[in-house]
Deep mutational scan, measured.
Amino acid sequence: KRPMNAFMVWSRGQRRKMALENPKMHNSEISKRLGADWKLLTDAEKRPFIDEAKRLRAVHMKEYPDYK
């Protein structure tokens, strides 16, 4: 299984929150909104998620060195 990218790290928490706030919203609509919201974030706002994704990638490479 591939490590999560920055968007996936960020959206994991946001998806739960949005689903709780909008229980009747379909998952596909939540995904569209999350994508739009992510694009509106500044680089500074994205930085912690980018850093976490880099950390996850490094751990994955160490655990699965032959993964392609």
Rank of each mutant, 00 (worst) to 15 (best):
M25S: 06
M18D: 05
P65E: 12
R2V: 13
P48K: 04
E29Q: 02
Q14H: 09
D66H: 08
Y67S: 14
Y67H: 14
W38Y: 01
F49M: 05
I30P: 01
A58H: 15
R2N: 14
L20D: 13
K54H: 11
K39H: 05
G13D: 13
D66V: 09
A53P: 00
R57F: 13
A44D: 13
R55S: 08
R2Y: 11
G13W: 06
K1V: 11
N27V: 07
R57E: 13
L34A: 03
W10N: 02
K1L: 10
P3C: 05
E21N: 12
I50D: 03
K39Q: 09
E63L: 06
D66Q: 07
R12E: 15
N27S: 12
I50N: 05
M18R: 01
R55F: 03
A6F: 01
N5G: 07
E21G: 05
M8E: 15
D51F: 03
E29L: 06
P65S: 11
Q14M: 09
K17N: 08
A58S: 13
A6H: 06
M18S: 00
T42A: 04
K17D: 05
A44G: 09
K62T: 12
L56T: 10
R2S: 14
M18K: 01
K24L: 15
M4R: 01
R12N: 13
M4A: 10
H60N: 14
A19V: 13
W10A: 07
A19I: 06
G13F: 14
D51P: 00
E29P: 00
L40P: 00
Y67I: 13
A53T: 02
L41R: 00
M4D: 14
A58Q: 13
A44K: 08
F49Y: 14
K62D: 13
K46F: 01
A19Y: 05
I30D: 05
A6C: 04
R57I: 09
H60K: 09
Y64Q: 15
R57M: 11
L20S: 12
Y67P: 15
A19L: 14
D37C: 07
H26Q: 14
G13T: 15
M25G: 03
R12A: 15
H60A: 13
K17A: 07
N27Q: 11
K1G: 13
N27F: 09
R47E: 11
L56K: 05
A53Y: 01
K39D: 09
K1H: 07
D43N: 10
R2F: 04
A6L: 02
H26V: 10
N27L: 09
L40A: 13
I50S: 06
N5V: 02
L56C: 11
F7E: 06
D37Y: 07
D37G: 09
E45N: 02
E29S: 04
P3G: 10
H60M: 13
F49T: 02
A44F: 05
S11T: 04
D66N: 10
T42N: 11
L40G: 08
Q14V: 04
W10M: 03
D66W: 04
R55T: 10
T42L: 01
K62A: 12
E52D: 09
V9F: 02
F7N: 05
D66Y: 06
H26N: 11
I50C: 08
H60L: 08
M4P: 13
R47C: 06
A58V: 10
R47H: 05
M8A: 12
R12Y: 14
F7P: 00
W10F: 07
L20F: 05
D66S: 10
S28V: 01
T42K: 04
V59Q: 10
N22A: 03
D51N: 11
L20P: 04
M61S: 14
M61V: 13
I50K: 10
P48G: 02
M18C: 04
N22I: 00
V59P: 11
M25A: 05
L20V: 10
M61P: 10
L20G: 07
Y64I: 10
L41M: 10
R47S: 10
L34Q: 03
E29I: 03
R57Q: 11
K39C: 04
L56A: 07
W10P: 07
Y64N: 15
N5H: 10
R12L: 14
I50V: 10
D51T: 07
A53D: 03
A6K: 01
G35E: 14
K24G: 11
K17Q: 08
A44Q: 10
G13V: 15
K46C: 02
D66P: 09
K54T: 11
R12G: 12
K62L: 08
K17G: 02
K46D: 06
D66T: 09
E45G: 03
V59A: 11
R55N: 10
I30W: 03
L34E: 07
A53V: 00
A19R: 07
D43Y: 10
R33S: 05
G13R: 01
L40E: 11
P65Q: 12
W38K: 04
S28G: 10
E63T: 05
R16I: 10
F7V: 03
S31F: 07
L41K: 04
L56N: 13
Y64W: 11
R55C: 06
E29H: 03
N5F: 01
L20A: 13
